[in-house]
Design a protein around this nucleic acid. Structure first.
Lengths: 208, 208
DNA sequence: TCCGTAATTATGCAAGCGTATAATTAGCTG
DNA sequence: CAGCTAATTATACGCTTGCATAATTACGGA
């Protein structure tokens, strides 16, 4: 009479990432309130108790999901490392274009980001993840900006504030692209972003 | 022995706005999950049942709260209309500074904005409100940019894309200011925003 | 002053939540 | 192939939630 559900043992990493994937899917589809422990477990093909085995608390799982999402976005903006050109100015240009174009500007990603932004002011773990991913992106941008300026024989004193402003610019465009995809012609945002950066840095960035 | 809680009857508008205020306060302090029906009622000085009398569902109350906040927020960015200087360039400068400084960069506002952003992709009504408030802000910015450029004897062909980029820049800075208030020195964002706009427009904006 | 009404309180319920804990079993180790 | 261990399932508890509904009472109009 005991029809206990059969199961397979799977590597820890696999299970953790399956749970994280399920969490992201659910939040993207139905908002944070849809990501209940039971729903996550079902989506990941396990029973709810298992979550406790890998994450001490649900909050911890959500934070891990957020980190996965954000680092994934940063890397997507980088593109495949090989694809980036060697010339610092061209590389910066490609990076900027990527950051405001699909697949980075995916409505799903924006929705997920918005969901986690809600938690950031209140949840210390979320805040830590947000800070580190934010800085991770911004530092990459700052390095590229500095390289580009240097290659043009310019000084790099203002790299930090330029990176802050540039990061904000990309963030803002990214959000609008995801939230209001129909408001902009394809490629319009890329073109706007690159022109804006050209002015910001007083550099002639090529529109690849 | 019936010590039933005494109460006063108050006008409908007063009660509704008291409930909305309580909702915003609670979300600001403890996130959406803190805004329970019971907590809202307590904060507003009534009993939970009364909420049902004014709002058919909690969702309806939350939507009303969002709308109240958003319309107020756009006006706060404008500052008091009188306070803006007459000179177009100076006016733009003040406007930009306001948009990335308290009270506009209020964590409560950012958190609520994030909450609505998360609904935008899923909810048509939300999307309409977002679009109109976004365009409302951007159009004001575009007009100011055009005025400033004109007053400097420059053409205004690029006002639209400059407004899109400038709006994105302000949005991004605003979000970060609200989400990570400790990451930036007081006034730093204002200074960064104004410098960035100076370059963006090739105009010398004064740091008031 | 009294009465009707709707604004307000009081009570309760059913569902869903996160989490704790015990029981099972898959799969490696010898 | 026997036994150990930890990965996994199963069960249940206590709490909170939103909402419905019944009981009261403030207060303006006759």
């Amino acid at each position: 009479m005991s029809a206990r559900r059969p199961f397979q043992r799977v590597g820890e990493e696999t299970r953790r990432s399956a749970l994280i994937e399920a969490t992201l899917d659910l939040i993207a589809e139905g908002g944070p309130q849809a990501a209940t422990v039971r729903a996550i477990a079902t989506r990941a093909g396990v029973t709810p108790g298992l979550i406790r085995h890998y994450f001490a608390t649900k909050e911890e799982l959500v934070a891990a999901a957020h980190e996965t999402l954000m680092t994934g976005l940063t890397e997507a903006s980088m593109g495949s490392a090989d694809a980036l050109p060697d010339d610092p100015v061209a590389r910066l240009s490609v990076f900027i274009g990527n950051a405001v174009s699909p697949p980075v500007t995916d409505p799903r990603a924006v929705a997920l980001w918005a969901a986690s932004m809600q938690l950031v002011p209140r949840d210390a773990a979320m805040r830590a993840v947000h800070l580190s991913t934010y800085l991770g992106f911004r530092d990459r941008l700052e390095a590229m900006i500095a390289d580009a300026l240097r290659s043009a024989g310019r000084d790099t004193d203002e790299s930090r504030s330029l990176a802050i402003a540039g990061n904000a610019l990309l963030d803002g465009l990214w959000v609008e692209a995801g939230a209001l995809p129909d408001q902009f012609a394809p490629g319009e945002l890329r073109s706007i972003a690159i022109k804006a950066f050209s002015r910001l840095l007083s550099l002639d960035l090529p529109e690849v």
